[in-house]
Design a binder for these strands. Structure first.
Length: 761
DNA sequence: TCCATCCGGGG
DNA sequence: GTGTACGGATGGA
């Protein structure tokens, strides 16, 4: 059986598709690049047939029937020998009319036309999609360590170690004199890179994962290899960098280089609670595994110089964690790949809008429909100018509330799109019986199912089927896990469609559709709030698709039940309001900023975390502790805690490392117009002979004195003292003030002109 | 309140 | 790679 792992094309004059399977490569010589032309007038067809560009004629020209923008039309389908010919032809044939689907990368074109999926079967010799698929490709995780002095710069210093982790391979290649079970000792850096190439070539991983490896590990290896004129080829497949917008991505054909950080950042992060997306934090949340603490970059330097064994353990653990993350994350990538039908290399680097777009292109193709062209730059800019009203967010009733029910719509926007048939091709149709305008003055056809709702419906139904099937499975079983991953992948795409319709770069952009979705959403949520209030609930807060309700008295649960039943009776299918959970208490600060705590003491915090590094630790820690105390009902204790931190700051009992503020240089120090503290400190550091480049992290401490904050900031390494007042007034107090304001409006107002500082003193 | 700028991950 | 693909928070005017 031939399983498709990766795909690309070769050939200089005639393109040949290369399909990478397990240990074999198959060539398909019978597929040609093509695009469509909609001739401005019928005479053009014969002219197009005579066209020659660079002395070459088209391979084949056909007149075909396709659907485009809702109409069936005759178009010219122009086949060429090589994808590289397309840009010239696309440009030259401009004079005949609109060119369509002239920017679909060749390998993607192949997968779409053949309905192939990554990790799916390809039947040979027909090159047709088969039914089988695998979910256990050979995965190898890797991580590099380098000598680190000063700011990170790709290729500046030597690579000291490369750690690798897979099912049956665990090793650290290094030239440092380290002893350890998994050490492969080599002579120097050159041999290290050679050993790495050899290992990959022999192990033949089907997927190679790293963490931030697109922007760090792979480009670093490439730079260092150049120094020794090493050829970075793995079983004859070269490492190349594929340009993708502002960034570029490393690629080795057949090996599926995947950067887990990119996928976490672009796809998973909205579903995660961690605000930072470093390997440590992500592994902690997703795996409950802890990254070894080596003591920051100073600790790393020290380990390298004095005790490389520590660095070896650290490197091995990083590769192990990366492998663990891959096991957790990749199944979702595989399922998305099956839904969208693109190579894993592309899939794993796409944002949700792109996932939707390529799914739509694939679906359009299967419906004999040509996709709209991508909007041009100026169109995108123009679209960006037009904003539209988003979701309804109710101003919360500030303060602490007890016993809170959280109800939300299951997939609000997708269900609105489906139930109202919202789609670029159903808007303002001509049927007389459809013309009942919605809240934005537009209507959507009632007679034919729209393009996007139809696709959503099939995803939605498949997900429901999976979910009901899962109820009969045991939670720990493999089949449950697979079904769960599938439904998550479906949910991810379902949730992305609304955003896609309003995304300026979308081919199927439809401002009026997106606008209608949020307008209808606002109507529903407001209606729900009214219903809740009529039943006696107090609506403490509500945002987009959720309401948070409290009710005094003994009938809480009964009324809640009544409420849900009543609401759901009136909602059109498949819309549904569900009980998300009941919380013991919650603190509401402002829109989007609140915290909830359940009976087990578990906190859900939204919008309040201060984990950004441009806040001093003392402020971040104090905020967290205050929040916990308030939710535990101990507001006095919280005030006391702040007072104690303030007192400690005044007495300089808080150590200096708690007041260090870290900011990154994004350009060279002399390029800044606004001289912020970190720029001023960067200039100081340069005077001290330290090299500062874009990317350098500047650690500073604010000192007592006159003048601006910038002028009073000095490098953290030279700081012996700090300005207590600054850290109290500008860091600690602002971080907690909102919380207390929400708790204690009256008391704060009673404070009148008294400053916040006095209040906490 | 609006607009420009900054930031992410990695050693 | 049949290129020309951020989005959210912040802080200054």
């Amino acid at each position: 059986m031939f399983i498709l792992l990766d795909i690309d094309y070769a050939g200089t004059n005639k393109a040949v598709i290369r399909l990478f399977g397990r240990n074999e490569v198959k060539l398909d010589t019978n597929f040609s690049p093509y695009f469509y032309i909609v001739p401005d007038n019928p005479d053009f067809v014969s002219k197009i047939k005579k066209e020659k560009i660079n002395e070459r004629t088209a391979e084949r020209i056909e007149l075909v029937k396709r659907k485009f923008e809702g109409k069936e039309i005759e178009v010219v389908q122009l086949f060429l020998s090589h994808p590289k010919d397309v840009p010239a032809w696309r440009y030259e044939l401009k004079k005949y009319g609109k060119r369509l689907e002239a920017d679909i990368p060749f390998a993607r074109r192949y997968m779409i036309d053949k309905s192939l999926s990554p990790l799916g079967e390809v039947k040979l010799p027909e090159f047709e999609a088969g039914k089988a698929s695998i979910r256990d490709p050979r995965v190898l995780a890797f991580d590099i360590e380098t000598i680190s002095d000063g700011p990170i710069k790709i290729g500046k210093n030597k690579i000291t170690m490369i750690s690798l982790w897979g099912q049956d391979i665990q090793k650290v290649i290094t030239w440092a004199p380290v002893k350890g079970e998994h050490v492969e000792l080599v002579k120097g850096e050159k041999e290290l890179i050679q050993a790495f190439i050899r290992t990959l070539s022999e192990y033949k991983p089907e997927i190679v994962v790293g963490y931030n490896s697109d922007m760090f590990d792979w480009p670093y290896i490439k730079k260092r290899a150049e120094k020794y004129k090493l050829n970075l080829s793995f079983n004859k497949e070269k490492l190349v960098f594929v340009k993708r917008g502002r960034a570029s991505a490393p690629r080795i054909s057949g090996m599926n280089l995947i950067d887990l950080y990119v996928f976490v950042r672009d796809i998973l992060s909205p579903y995660m609670s961690s605000e930072t997306l470093g390997l440590g934090a992500v592994a902690q949340e997703l795996l409950n595994e802890t990254k070894l603490d080596i003591g920051g970059h100073q600790g790393m330097t020290k380990a390298w110089e004095e005790n490389p064994e520590v660095l070896y353990e650290y490197a091995l653990q990083d590769a192990k964690i990366t492998y663990g993350l891959a096991k957790e994350i990749l199944p979702l990538v595989y399922e998305l790949g099956t839904i969208v039908g693109l190579p894993l290399f592309d899939m794993s680097r796409m944002r949700s809008g792109q996932l939707v777009e390529w799914l739509l292109i694939k679906e359009a193709h299967s419906q004999n429909t040509i996709a709209p062209n991508r909007p041009k730059r100026d169109t995108i800019l123009e679209r960006r100018q037009t904003s539209f009203e988003g979701a309804f967010v109710k101003e919360p009733i500030k303060g602490l509330h007890k016993q809170i029910a959280v109800c939300d719509f299951r997939s609000l926007y997708p269900t609105i799109i489906m139930s109202q048939n919202i789609s670029p091709d159903t808007i303002d149709c001509e049927h007389a019986d459809c013309k009942i305008p919605g809240p934005t003055g537009h209507w959507f056809c009632k007679n034919k199912a729209g393009f996007t709702p139809k696709i959503l419906k099939s995803l939605f139904d498949e997900r429901l089927k999976l979910k009901s099937g899962m109820k009969k499975m045991t939670r720990d079983s493999v089949e449950y896990k697979i079904a769960d991953t599938k439904q998550k992948a479906l949910k991810l795409i379902l949730n992305s469609v609304y955003g896609y319709l309003g995304f300026p770069g979308a081919r199927w952009y439809s401002l009026e559709s997106a606008r209608a979705v949020t307008a209808i959403g606002r109507e529903y949520i407001k209606q729900i709030m009214e219903t809740a209030e009529k039943l006696g609930f107090t609506v403490v807060y509500g945002d987009t698709d959720s309401v948070m309700l409290t009710l005094d008295g003994p009938n809480f649960e009964k009324t809640l039940d009544k409420f849900l039943k009543k609401v759901n009776k009136t909602l059109p299918a498949p819309m549904e309001l569900e009980l998300d959970g009941v919380y013991d208490c919650g603190l509401f600060v402002t829109k989007k900023r609140y915290a909830l705590m359940d009976a087990q003491g578990k906190m859900v915090i939204k919008g309040l975390e201060r984990v950004r590094r441009d806040w001093a630790q003392v402020a971040r820690k104090t905020q967290e502790q205050v929040l916990r105390l308030i939710l535990q009902g101990d507001t006095d204790g919280a005030i006391k805690h702040v007072k104690s931190v303030v007192a400690q700051l005044k007495k300089k009992e808080i150590p200096i490392d708690q007041v260090i503020i870290t900011e990154q240089m994004t350009k060279r120090p002399e390029e800044y117009k606004a001289i912020g503290p970190h720029v001023k400190v960067a200039r100081d550091l340069i005077k001290m002979g330290k090299p500062i480049e874009p990317g350098s992290l500047i650690e500073y401490v604010v000192q007592i004195g006159k003048g601006s904050i910038s002028s009073r900031s000095i490098p953290a390494e030279t700081a012996q003292d700090y300005d207590s007042e600054y850290y109290i007034e500008r860091q600690v107090i602002p971080a907690v003030a909102r919380l207390f304001e929400a708790m204690n409006r009256d008391q704060h107002e009673l404070q009148g002109k008294q400053s916040r500082l006095e209040f906490f003193s």
